[in-house]
Design a protein around this nucleic acid. Structure first.
Lengths: 238, 238
DNA sequence: TTAATTCAATTGTAAATACAAGAAGTTAAA
DNA sequence: TTTAACTTCTTGTATTTACAATTGAATTAA
């Protein structure tokens, strides 16, 4: 009996992905060919190809006609620009999270960067702030705004060292399907930012504004992130 | 008789894309349904779906099960983070380009950020610098390195107000298939950068390091871009 | 030995088909 | 009037089949 209703291509994708990040498939290796994967997992080629396309799209493999699927080298930077949340992008062992402003219900800022529906404006938002440490250095200072709709008990949840994506999926059946993001380089002028990220006033930080879309229709939430990129780069493929 | 060998899904993708950027399909509109597109273009659903998946992947549409393909609003920022080159991302009318260092053959820098094959190191590179103006404001200062392999007459070409991607495709049959990128926020300390981008010393700029992969196997080239993001954001979807 | 050819394996493109799942409107019942 | 069930249209997932294009190794010919 199969679990729930996760599509086959998605399960194969996750299995292969795990094989790559765990080092079972190493850089330069060829994945099993499409036909081999078909036989191994009792699937058909279009299904297998869909899984491989996902991997290629996120930079884990490069496909080459006539040759196969080549495992790509692991990036030097933090792969936060694609759909992966911070926890997935960095890995739990190197990531620590502290909540500096606990979740609370409030109104949306009047000059909010993203467009808000009337419903969103009416119900207000759940707001919180977190600082995330990579190898014990504070790298991300993140402000999150969730529409206050159907999120019972959220304000009393503990977000320390947890993946927000996981929490939303496990407790509210919310799956992040995609989103859009805007990037800027700015000076860290706000005192709080400098304090949290342990940088001097005026130091450049990368400012990332994101709208995150979920499987619940018309339910998106928002995140504004200040990144200290002096030691790390943000990494992405395209 | 059909042109060359452009896949059907690709041609449909480009046609729909043009319909969106030209405003024939407006924000919030529904594209014709998959079955309608099949009938219109004499294609089958998997082919049509592949075209739509491309559009969705680049943020032009959102697909919603049971409803259709919804045209997404045009982004506020510059969509350079995906595969589009600068010219495509901004549009020719608002983009001007000047060459500040004409293409020349030289050695690779000793501390080059990306790994280079032995062949690349042997042949050296073609190097040039350009400044790109959006609405007559200098926004991008870009340093480009191309492996000096099979690019006859490149050093004598004029790059002003031209798309490098187009030039490579038309003159050398080189198609950009994808790549990887690293982003940082840095201070503009180099005098040349400040002069070219017309900013003061110490102002934050977004530094974008890119490896661009082509259809010629093992032929990639590299671009390092300093972006003044005080008036524009870089935009991407995921 | 070298170069050209052939061959098998791999990914790329495309069609035809079937059913599931979700959204929206229509109809019928309460 | 309101609610519920039904129908229809949409996209999502999956199978099956076929052929094209590319690669790399093996084979053959010079």
């Amino acid at each position: 009996m199969e679990e729930k209703s996760v599509p086959h291509y998605r399960r194969l994708y996750e299995q292969l992905r795990k094989g790559i990040v765990d080092g079972i498939y190493k850089e330069g290796d060829l994945l099993p060919s499409e036909n081999e994967l078909c036989a191994l997992h009792n699937l058909t080629r279009p299904t297998v190809r869909k899984a491989l396309d996902l991997l290629a799209h996120e930079g884990f493999i490069k496909k080459q006609q006539g040759l196969g699927s080549i495992v790509h080298k692991l990036p030097k930077g933090i792969g936060i620009l694609s759909i992966a949340g911070t926890t997935t992008a960095i890995g739990k062992k190197n990531l620590k999270t502290t909540t500096v402003v606990r979740p609370r219900v409030q109104n949306w800022p009047s000059d909010f960067f993203f467009a808000l529906s009337d419903e969103f404006k009416t119900v207000g938002c759940i707001y919180f702030e977190r600082v995330r440490f990579v190898n014990d250095h504070p790298i991300f200072y993140e402000q999150t705004y969730l529409p206050n709709i159907n999120l019972p008990r959220f304000t009393s949840r503990n977000l320390d060292n947890k993946s927000l994506f996981d929490l939303l999926r496990q407790n509210y059946q919310l799956e992040i399907k995609g989103g859009e993001q805007y990037l800027k380089a700015i000076e860290a002028v706000d005192e709080k930012i400098c304090e949290y990220l342990n940088i001097r006033t005026g130091q450049p930080v990368l400012y990332l504004s994101r709208k995150l879309e979920t499987n619940r229709i018309n339910f998106s939430f928002f995140s504004f992130m200040y990144c200290n990129t002096s030691d790390f780069s943000l990494y992405g493929v395209f």
